[in-house]
Design a protein around this nucleic acid. Structure first.
Lengths: 346, 346
DNA sequence: TGTTAGCACTCGGTAGCATTGAGTGCTAAC
DNA sequence: GTTAGCACTCAATGCTACCGAGTGCTAACA
């Protein structure tokens, strides 16, 4: 359906969406004519609104209330009417100065980014750190904690640090450990984790016949060390901002949205979808997704460096979100994080 | 005020508290006689209740409602009437089997403990990890991330691992780094962090005259590496369980309690107070504390090993909490975590 | 003297009902 | 094509009456 709207209809739709974003209440024809100076009477506006409802851009909660934009209405607004202003240099500078990344580990950076972004946008912030499996091997080190327990430190090309405790043969000497890490660092650097895994698996198969004792141990150790725990890191900040929204003002809605924000798994599924495309992505309403975030919109952008660490960040809020404000914030934040990742990578 | 209650009063108080815990509603004299088979008429019960109210154990929200226990009433109930049954071995076993700690880092263990404890108790769980400053130095290692950036891995006696990125003199060779970590591990092992700091500060003062270049570098590096970021690790699990409680059913109460649970700082202050004493501690209502958790009770216990890492865990819920169920869970969980810490320490 | 039955009273909660006001759709006039 | 007018709808508000759980008090009972 090629929905061409004439200029008047566009103006009125835009006015309705804006008013609704500002007030969270159905907006009526009178209110429109009062607040926006079209030279039209309420009755004329009503005619247009009626058409817009016919076309599916608006709906009315009941006969004698005003209209609210539908999902489709928001879509049209965002795609055709919304002008996203870029952040001014001053604003960017201001945003940058909110951050203090000095000496922070990746996790902390993610958390901090979420916190600041959420605070700026005034909506709940989501950050999903790059997945372990999507990183590229750079370095691995072993530190002995006790006889049979080793701390593995894995550093990816993008500077992501992950550590993990594994059990290991107590008879390994420190010298051997060092040799093993040297060996692994020589062999595996620059490979993606799936490649690394494949290589290890292959060599372990051949190992029986060809490899010496040390190599066998190295392979076993790295196999354990690089096992993916599948633990995704999702950081949620400003949860309570969500509850400030009038659309989640009833206890039931509050509980529902909160349970969703608490369930990392659901968030991961949501955020995963935005890793498909570049740039800022906007998911409005429950479009083809879980009903869990019914009535919510999600504005996300993935971040990455050239070395392949890919994460996603974004903001979640009511469908009636202040898109023109939030979109540039998410966009810029994602670029910022990408730049930090680059820097970390060297 | 030595509030001696005769047996009948005790029985009735106990019945009221129990009924209130179960129903969250004011309980009246009739309800008492119906549900508990005292051989008393409602009128007699009323007399006793009136006395109990006089003494401050009960209060009534308004004239024609039943009574609810006051803070003092809950106190008396917990101190004198409550019989905390221990967990049976089967239950302990069941609890133990909920956990899978294999290969987990300290952070993950804390998070997992909170999750399971919260799920078992059916209230919101809080875990505060041992503070960096309260640990005892065991080992430090440096891993070069890029020319001027080092990853510091600090391991405490109790097995707590902390890592951190610091900037360092790019001219340091790997060999020198190794010498530095050897030097620090030799010098500092077994000292508490405050002791370590004092020692470093003192030596840095003397350094100008006496120490060689490497030692100077070692001291500078360790000074940066062991700086406390003061980042306390508090894990909150099962936030939404709190909202299920009828006492937090209005949107305003929900927002208030949620903001509190979101503010790590407030939680830290609360949890800090329970590090004073051993065993399970119970904070009822807002007793001498922030009004933020008005109407809440906090059941906590600290955990620690002999090497000094001290953390706190507990459960927060409405004053009307199922104490007899929660207390043994918190108690056992704290012991469990202590044992894990011991094991980590070797 | 302690216990109980009876009774008047209190007060939050709910259901019913009229009123109000913002909003709509329709029609006829401009 | 636009607008003024009008009848209509419906959530929200306020009012009243009523119900019921609960209390305190008093008088009778064991």
């Amino acid at each position: 359906m090629a929905d061409e709207l004439n200029e008047r209809s566009q103006n009125i739709l835009e006015a309705i969406v804006k008013d609704y974003i500002a007030s969270a209440e159905p907006v009526g024809s009178r209110a429109i004519t009062r607040r926006h100076s079209f030279n039209l009477s309420p009755a004329s506006v009503r005619n247009v609104m009626s058409d817009l409802e016919e076309m599916g851009f608006l709906c009315s909660p009941h006969t004698s209330a005003g209209r609210i934009p539908t999902e489709k209405g928001f879509h049209y607004y965002i795609d055709s009417l919304l002008q996203v202003r870029d952040l001014s240099d001053a604003e960017k500078q201001n945003l940058l100065s909110s951050y203090r990344f000095q000496g922070m580990k990746m996790d902390d950076v993610m958390q901090e980014v979420g916190r600041v972004m959420s605070g700026l946008a005034n909506y709940t912030g989501l950050v999903m750190a790059p997945k372990f499996a999507s990183t590229v091997f750079r370095q691995i080190e072993f530190i002995r904690l006790s006889h049979g327990r080793l701390l593995v430190i894995y550093v990816s090309e993008s500077g992501l640090v992950q550590n993990k405790v594994i059990d290991a043969d107590p008879s390994l000497t420190n010298r051997e450990l060092e040799q093993i890490s040297n060996y692994l660092n020589r062999e595996l650097t620059g490979m993606s984790i799936p490649q690394v895994r494949a290589k290890i698996a292959k060599q372990l198969q051949q190992e029986r016949s060809r490899y010496d004792q040390l190599q066998k141990r190295a392979l076993n150790l790295s196999s354990a060390a690089l096992q993916d725990e599948g633990q995704e890191l999702v950081f949620v900040s400003g949860t309570s901002l969500m509850l400030e929204q009038p659309e989640f003002s009833t206890p039931e809605q509050m509980k529902r949205i909160l349970r969703t924000l608490e369930s990392k798994q659901q968030l991961i599924e949501l955020l995963d979808r935005s890793q498909q495309a570049d740039g800022v992505q906007i998911f409005i309403g429950n479009q083809s997704s879980h009903a869990e975030i019914d009535g919510c919109s999600l504005i996300t952008s993935k971040f990455s460096n050239k070395k392949g660490a890919i994460g996603t960040l974004g903001v979640i809020g009511p469908m009636r979100m202040d898109y023109s404000q939030v979109i540039p914030i998410v966009d810029f934040t994602a670029q910022l994080v990408s730049r930090i990742l680059e820097r970390e990578a060297e």
